[in-house]
Design a binder for these strands. Structure first.
Lengths: 213, 213
DNA sequence: TTTTGTGAACGTGTTCACAGCG
DNA sequence: CGCTGTGAACACGTTCACAAAA
């Protein structure tokens, strides 16, 4: 298959969510135009994104909501369950653990680790915090979440990789060095705040349609 | 000034962090090459990013760590303080509130709001949770953080805009409709997880350097 | 000689515009 | 006729490669 861009994958995820909503509202078919409007993009973008994976629509009619949803579900790999481990039992880790939305989408948090001995043994939700040194391939983790202080992030990434984890969601504001066969996505809130700071600092104000009269 | 891409701004934020680290390590000068290596990008990218804003280096020598740091600080608008309000006193809101890293970078959380009457009045950190209806222009909020359930997100965005907020950091997995002079950055963890799911689902595995022998 | 700053070349993602089908 | 699917055109971000400067 041709290389798929990260932005296409992100948009598929958005389409999937829109389709869930439309399905819940009872919609049976949807056009690329309508799907695009919900996301604030162009209909050509929607059709192009989908075209990388097949022809899911009917000309003159649009897409079956249910069928397209199933297709995207399969494309995104959501037709299976993923074993997730959270490393770092602090605030972000706890927030993720408490959020039940993930499990409904196929992401099961099956373990929580921490490097701090004081955290180990504590019970959070249905899980007991284990020491990071106990993480092993036997845990069969698919995706590791790094929710530790930044100074521990690289070390934790290496422990995850050693345990066979091939996907990492990183909340630490630091570039992680991992082997080429491991995927990392970073959620960097500091950078997001600074991006807003930059935008708000620009003299003219952001995206202002026309100069003030 | 020419339009600056979002990726350039993100990288500036990363450079800034690297410069802080290098400064803490006692480094006085740094080349674009070294800066690039820390971020896993090319030195040309570093120089190009900086060139949009001026000439901060010395040919043959590199950049003064201290000087470049100050410049980027000014570019990103971090030479002032930003008043931040968090809406949603749940897990993510609390996590952000507890994270002290933001205030050190100029982001002061000055108010916490919630729509749930049961939350109102509770004390979190040094702040008392107020009802979202109490949010007004008098709060002088620069940046609003939406950490509510997805169904409340659009309504909260409108309340923030009505109160004069021009920057929003959105943790709800939903496209927000806001006026053109309001900036929104969305942190969408569901999409990040699904991006990993997609990558791990690809038959050949991600970014594998060479086929297995 | 080293390293910056930058126009030009390149590559990738988005949009256009229309042929293809229902 | 309506809407999809897609090659071609376009826009934009990245990389190259080198002149300029210390």
């Amino acid at each position: 298959m041709a290389k798929i861009s990260e932005s296409t994958v992100s948009r598929l995820s958005h389409y999937y969510r829109v389709l869930e909503e439309v399905a819940a509202e009872g919609g049976k078919v949807i056009s690329s135009q309508l799907l695009a409007e919900r996301e604030g993009i162009t209909s050509a973008q929607v059709r192009k994104d989908l075209s990388y994976f097949g022809s899911f629509g009917r000309r003159g009619l649009g897409y079956s909501v249910e069928h397209l949803r199933e297709q995207i579900r399969a494309i995104l790999g959501l037709d299976r369950r993923w074993r997730v481990a959270i490393v770092g039992a602090g605030h972000i880790g706890s927030a993720l653990l408490a959020y039940r939305g993930f499990s409904s989408q196929g992401f099961d948090v099956v373990a929580v680790f921490d490097a701090d001995a004081q955290q180990v043994g504590r019970t959070t939700g249905a899980l007991q915090v284990r020491h990071i040194a106990q993480l092993s391939a036997a845990d069969e983790i698919d995706i590791g979440v790094i929710a530790t202080p930044v100074r521990a992030a690289q070390e934790v990434a290496e422990a995850l990789v050693a345990a066979g984890v091939r996907g990492i969601l990183n909340f630490a504001p630091r570039k992680l060095r991992v082997p080429d066969d491991v995927w990392v996505r970073t959620v960097d809130m500091t950078t997001e705040f600074e991006g807003l700071s930059f935008a708000l600092t620009q003299p003219d104000g952001p995206r202002r349609r026309r100069a003030a009269g």
